[in-house]
Write a protein that binds this DNA or RNA. Structure first.
Lengths: 153, 153
DNA sequence: GATGAAAAAATTTGCGG
DNA sequence: CCGCAAATTTTTTCATC
């Protein structure tokens, strides 16, 4: 995580490829860009060290694991200072897959995955709205996610 | 993508591990769970075939690529039928990293990454609000993202 | 289905330009 | 900083249980 690393066009190309498929062989990338596999290896390691590549993950389709419902819940707090406490409670709920500290309409904005509408209802009423520091919530149900990508290097 | 595959505890364990590190050697997973590398290979392939594992990706830290600003923009359309047209326009903007078709406060909900507040301003005014089918937008600026994870198998 | 060994392929290291 | 090539490790296949 040394932070200072000036990336060139090869780095960018490698990043793009690895964003699409993290398991693509370095030898394949090497051939594709006219360098040796060793060079690819060195570049990727440097980008990891620099904190540019933070890791790799297998993408799992939530629906095939039985998570049918995706939604966002915007949360407003009674007092801004309650943020850490509420966050700790949200952290303990595995259905909360993302949380953001935001300015604008909500104080905390969360992305939620549940198995069913019933499960969402239960989560909302018994887990989230039961957190005493929360003043109000607003739910946006996602019917479809037509765009999903990463920033382009 | 055959859809029907009943996953067992080994599958779940492999999934969890691959969600954390997509490049972990199968031999390592095999040792960890007391099975052969061949078995791990077969299981992972099956989960790919079944559409449970949709792919692998290197995670890139947007900040280290110069994308300093993360925000959400909620969009309301003039008419619900304008959805496909607007989506196509959003698709063409690389700063739009996610889009959802939602019920609730907004019709379309987007996640945005830009290099700067100026770039966000420019995107909002010249690209997004310039789409004629859009009636109104609302921006939530993300100051911090304290939770980021995937659903648990 | 799972295993274990063999064959094929990829990763990783270090020398030399 | 790069490439080459050897040494190591991993993936992938397949006959067998």
């Amino acid at each position: 995580m040394t932070e200072n690393y000036r990336i060139d066009n090869l780095d960018k190309a490698l990043l793009s490829a690895l964003q699409q498929d993290a398991r693509v062989p370095y030898a394949e990338l090497a051939k594709r860009h006219g360098v040796s596999a060793g060079t690819v290896h060195v570049r990727v390691e440097k980008m990891k060290q620099a904190g540019i590549i933070t890791g790799t993950q297998a993408m799992v389709d939530p629906k095939s694991l039985g998570y049918q419902v995706c939604c966002f819940i915007g949360i407003n707090l009674k007092a801004a200072g309650d943020y850490p406490k509420v966050l700790a409670k949200l952290q303990a709920l595995p259905e909360v897959v993302e949380a953001y500290y935001t300015t604008g309409h909500y104080s905390i904005f969360t992305k939620i995955q549940t198995r069913s509408i019933d499960a969402l209802h239960h989560l909302l009423v018994n887990q989230i709205q039961a957190i005493p520091q929360i003043q109000s919530t607003e739910t946006l149900l996602s019917l479809q996610q037509p765009i999903q990508r990463q920033v382009t290097p």
